[in-house]
Design a protein around this nucleic acid. Structure first.
Length: 224
DNA sequence: TAGGCCATCTGGTCCT
DNA sequence: AGGACCAGATGGCCTA
């Protein structure tokens, strides 16, 4: 797990989640661009999953019944619940045929709505970084939402730091002032390797930070 | 077996 | 009026 993200998770929640999802469950791996380890410190969202059960299970089978009528409800048939649409003595038994029909239509709509909601959650799971693997349990709904929130906060923070960095580089090489206070806590040497050298060119800095040409650094007009 | 998570049903409320 | 949304209730499945 990325150390930074680990630190952003409360100890209890982390213990719980790592037990359930494995050590790689929250690795912000390649492709997610959250920055290199150590560069981006803890997200402000230190409350990630704290105070929440954040348990995962999602072990239930897929309920795929989209049937218009409620009688084909897989769930209903499986459990034969007391609701028992259209069961003798059930809530619908003493209603008129029209009322029953209406109720079943409403039930079907509600089912569709919930399925849409679950599809959206699946879409969310697909884009947030955790170990996607058949051997790893799917994130629970609450864990999905909380992780997504934390991920967004981390991305926002990374973007903000990148903006500060670009602004800093834009100020030129003559700067002798201390590094921006917002970045100071992260360690001057690690974040600003050129801070002690006015000789470093902008291009040098850009190469160091970007590796490859990037639109983030296209401001640089220095010639090597 | 208890607890967590889930799908579904249901009635109420709000919106168009 | 009909549909969307919501929250409570209920019971099934799974895991520790």
């Amino acid at each position: 797990i990325e150390e930074n993200l680990l630190k952003s998770i409360s100890n209890d929640a982390l213990l719980d989640l790592t037990q359930r999802y494995g050590q790689s469950a929250f690795g912000f791996g390649a492709g997610h661009g959250a920055g290199s380890p150590g560069r981006y410190p803890l997200t402000p969202a230190n409350d990630f999953l704290s105070g929440q059960t954040a348990k995962s299970n999602e072990s239930g089978g897929e309920h795929t019944s989209d049937d218009e009528d409620g009688f084909d409800s897989l769930e209903s048939r499986k459990r034969g619940s007391s609701f028992g649409e259209d069961k003798p003595g059930g809530p619908l038994a003493k209603k008129s045929k029209e009322q029953r029909s209406l109720r079943l239509s409403i039930n079907a709509r509600e089912r569709r709505r919930m399925h849409d909601l679950n599809d959206a959650l699946d879409g969310l799971r697909a884009v947030i970084p955790y170990a996607h693997s058949p051997s790893v349990r799917k994130l629970s709904k609450i864990a999905t939402l909380l992780l997504a929130k934390n991920y967004i906060l981390m991305q926002a923070q990374a973007l903000e730091e990148m903006r500060r960095l670009v602004a800093y580089l834009n100020q030129g090489q003559t700067i002798s002032s201390p590094i921006p206070t917002a970045l100071a806590p992260f360690g001057q040497a690690a974040v600003y390797p050129f801070s002690g050298s006015a000789l470093a060119t902008c291009a040098e800095k850009c190469t160091t930070y970007s590796g490859t040409p990037s639109t983030l650094f296209k401001h640089c007009n220095d010639k090597p």
